[in-house]
Simulated scan of single mutants.
Amino acid sequence: MKTEVRGNGGSISLQNPSLFNTPLDPITGALKGCLGSLDGACIEKLLLHCASALENNDVTLAQQVMWVLNNVASTVGDTNQRLTAWFLRALISRASRAVEGYGKVHILDFSITHCMQWPTLIDALAKRPEGPPSLRITVPSCRPQVPPLLNVSKEEVGHRLANFAKFRDVPFEFHVKDDDPCLSNETFATQFESLLTQLTRSQLDLRDDEALVINCQNWLRYLSDETKGNTTTVRDAFLDVIKGLNPRIIVVVDEDCDLSASSLSSRITTCFNYLWIPFDALETFLPKDSRQRLEYESDIGHKIENIVGFEGFRRTERLESGVKLSQRINDAGFVSLPFCEDTINEVKSLLDEHASGWGMKREEDMLVLTWKGHNSVFATAWTELED
């Protein structure tokens, strides 16, 4: 699947135009209502409003909706997944600097966020004094069946991003890297191992004149860290494959907890000492009878069940701590890139203003989001180690 937008050219043909025929509610009604309950349905509604406004050339409403989207991007899923959105500005800042001077940017997006973070990057690229580069985003068709879930196809997400990019006058392409259709009923692990063989420069149509950015957000944890005989782990194999693609920068974001131990007692102890954070955060921000809170707590409960109740390929939650995963990435031949002080101060300011209880610190080149002083989510940036 491919979606292309070139500047202010012709309109984009949508696979399901009826999705955008819903009458627009006033901004004071629909959008303020969404701000009170930032669930998946609300995010989808905001995207629909934005696309509809663009289709109807309602610039004022489109700008209002985009402002909301840029401020609540990725706020679906459990508490820690939603709060990775606070890293968005820092990561976008780092990725933007890494591709300075390039007229073409290609992002391989391995994440569970349904591309919700990319409107902010598109907006940042559109503000370049020399004009925006062309932007390509490629996503895999397979995805772990974990929250946040969205009742919209990847192709439809691509069309909505294309509308957004068109509005910001950023040349844009969106591709879905399809799996073998024979594997459609197989597990994510099986589908991804098949996809791994397709991650080559030729099959991804990588071009020498573009800056390649690889985004791994809440993704590596779902790649097996178990060896089979003398073979390498899928996690290490993935790192080897993406190294061969010669990326300009790799961004890694995940929860800062080590749940990869083979010992059940170790996983129970670590799980108990970490997963109080989302429960405590929910206690702080949502009332006990909130439907949203019950859904998030149910998601956390399913995560605990997987960590404790299953072994082998059925145990899909295999988090590594930021320090442990950073060592793995370093061993694969990458070197970390530090975040600049201005970026760190900007994120700290955002947290102080909008998220009481949350803080941020730096551990070497790793940014760490904290809840009441306890590590919650980490973010790192990497590039290939030069020989």
Rank of each mutant, 00 (worst) to 15 (best):
82 R>S: 06
387 D>H: 11
48 L>T: 09
286 L>H: 12
53 A>N: 08
354 H>T: 13
99 V>T: 15
362 R>H: 05
223 L>P: 01
163 N>R: 15
150 L>K: 09
209 D>N: 14
239 L>S: 00
127 K>Y: 04
292 Q>P: 01
167 F>R: 13
236 D>S: 05
174 F>P: 03
326 S>C: 14
317 E>D: 12
360 M>D: 00
57 N>I: 02
256 D>A: 08
43 I>E: 14
274 Y>W: 13
115 C>W: 00
257 C>A: 14
198 Q>L: 08
188 F>Q: 02
157 V>L: 14
42 C>L: 02
363 E>K: 10
272 F>S: 11
212 L>D: 03
93 S>G: 02
356 S>P: 06
365 D>E: 15
118 W>T: 00
239 L>V: 01
351 L>H: 01
85 A>Q: 05
324 K>S: 14
223 L>R: 01
187 T>N: 10
237 A>W: 00
127 K>C: 10
377 V>D: 06
345 N>P: 02
27 I>W: 14
213 V>K: 06
61 L>I: 08
188 F>G: 05
274 Y>S: 07
216 C>Q: 11
87 F>K: 00
340 C>M: 06
250 I>K: 06
170 V>A: 01
100 E>L: 11
249 I>M: 11
216 C>N: 11
129 P>H: 05
269 T>G: 02
45 K>M: 12
84 T>K: 08
370 T>I: 05
181 P>W: 09
201 R>H: 08
384 E>I: 15
222 Y>D: 07
334 F>W: 07
89 R>G: 05
134 S>T: 14
247 P>G: 05
317 E>V: 14
375 N>R: 13
282 L>Y: 10
293 R>M: 12
35 L>F: 02
205 D>H: 14
85 A>W: 01
7 G>Y: 07
120 T>M: 00
278 P>F: 03
323 V>L: 11
128 R>G: 10
69 L>P: 01
181 P>G: 07
228 K>P: 02
64 Q>G: 02
246 N>V: 07
376 S>Q: 10
244 G>A: 09
164 F>T: 13
168 R>H: 09
247 P>C: 07
120 T>Y: 00
277 I>A: 06
248 R>M: 09
97 R>D: 12
104 K>T: 04
269 T>A: 12
263 S>C: 15
245 L>C: 03
150 L>D: 09
137 I>M: 01
86 W>C: 08
370 T>P: 03
68 V>G: 00
241 V>H: 01
88 L>A: 03
132 P>Y: 03
2 K>W: 05
